[in-house]
Amino acid sequence: MTASVDELHLIARRIRKTVLELSHRAGTPHLGSSLSCVEMVVAAYWGGLKLDPAFAADLSQDRFILSKGHAATTLYAALAMKGIFPESWLEDYAKPGSPLGEHPSPGTPGIDVATGSLGHGLPVGIGLALASRIQGRDDRVCVLMSDGECNEGSVWEGALFAPAQQLNRLTVMIDYNKWQATGRSDEVTALAPLREKWSAFGWRAVEVDGHDVAKLVYWLNAPPDADGRPTVLVAHTVKGKGVSFMEDDNNWHYRIPSSSEVTRALAELQPL
């Protein structure tokens, strides 16, 4: 790990600040979903994977796919902080002509895969992992999905296929915040027990606290499974994490924060 846990927490708070400001300024939704996956994005970019902007085109780099594309602001904040594109781009987020739209667009620096429609990241990640193995590389692929995304059939097609190919350099993180757009994710579909489902599909399935950045970093750096299984981190999270009046309140799937709400939220995120 290159950064200390305290530094990672500071980065996470700063990303939350950016996410809140972007949502307020552009009037874009999915704030709760963007806040719940911050530690996972931080772990990927600052603690786990080789995602050096200087070598973006180099195939030996690791790959991170934000399959839950509606959390784009979290990804954008991370990419800007990492210097993969200029921080100034954030000012034009979601404005006409900006490369940074409400969902990630391939061709934007640091973004390979079009996400926003759910259930796409895992199969593409499987293809990337397979490509590495075919070409004898040892890079890793990490796919961040949402719990609601597990409604999609393509997720389970991929869940069946990846273990059959023993793609043990593939890691999936599931942001299990217990909500999807209009209901509890365990009620809309029979999602629970989620870890057991993935385990039964042949994955090294681990339950983690999705806000415990040190634990996430640990698992992203864990040696590949000796039995060849791909890894899934079923990460328990809180939707709207980090802002008391947003936590576990699904209204913030769509609500846009007012300027006074942003001020109150930022006060809770101190020190920045």
Binding site: G125, G127, L128, L130, E157
Partner: peptide
Amino acid sequence: DMIGIAAGLALG
């Protein structure tokens, strides 16, 4: 999935 996997292979 087959199409998604193909996309990943091409990206790789």
